[in-house]
């Protein structure tokens, strides 16, 4: 993944999460991964197209999703209902959109697909041939992993 893409994603993830959660968010060590990876339980995915092809995946477990949605909505949410899903989708959208805006300012053209959300147990994502950059974010609500896989169109 191009070096130029890394910072916008890391920064916007950090900024957006800090803002919507109104809490202390910490970023873990970035690393690369290429094999299939387990999904913790709730995954929001945003596709990217344009100069590049790829996707951004926001991965967290169910309790974390509930707590984040509760914090964002300002009320206690107990079940993984439509509201929670919509909230997580919105979070994914905000982060990706802000990153793409930053990239646009740097001269990279990206288009987004509407986010989709997956929930379930024992899920796994496999991307053949694409390695993903993992940006782990530690929030008081739990751990969120942002999994960015972008490649240039050859």
């Amino acid at each position: 993944m191009r070096v130029e893409y890394i910072n916008p994603f890391v920064e916007s993830a950090f900024n957006v999460m800090k803002e919507v959660l109104q809490a202390d968010v910490r970023r873990g060590e970035l690393f690369l991964k290429s094999t299939s990876m387990p999904v913790m339980g709730v995954a929001a995915i945003v596709g990217l197209a344009g100069d590049v092809e790829g996707r951004v995946l926001f991965d967290m477990d169910k309790p974390t999703a509930l707590r984040i949605a509760s914090a964002m909505n300002g009320e206690e949410l107990k079940a993984l209902d439509e509201l929670v899903k919509a909230t997580i989708t919105e979070l994914a959208n905000m982060i990706t959109a802000q990153a793409v805006t930053k990239l646009h300012e740097l001269g990279f053209r990206f288009d987004l697909t509407p986010p989709a959300i997956f929930t379930g147990d024992n899920m796994e994502v496999s991307n053949q041939d694409v390695e993903a950059l993992i940006v782990p974010m530690e929030t008081p609500q739990g751990k969120v992993e942002i999994n960015v896989a972008i490649r240039e169109r050859a």
């Binding site: 993944m1 191009r2 070096v3 890394i6 690369l32 290429s34 041939d129 694409v130 390695e131 050859a154």
Partner: peptide, 15 residues
């Protein structure tokens, strides 16, 4: 020049 953060031990999508 495309500078990429990439591990050659993973798949190499290079033309």
């Amino acid at each position: 020049i495309f500078f990429e953060f990439h591990d050659v031990l993973n798949a190499n999508p290079i033309p």
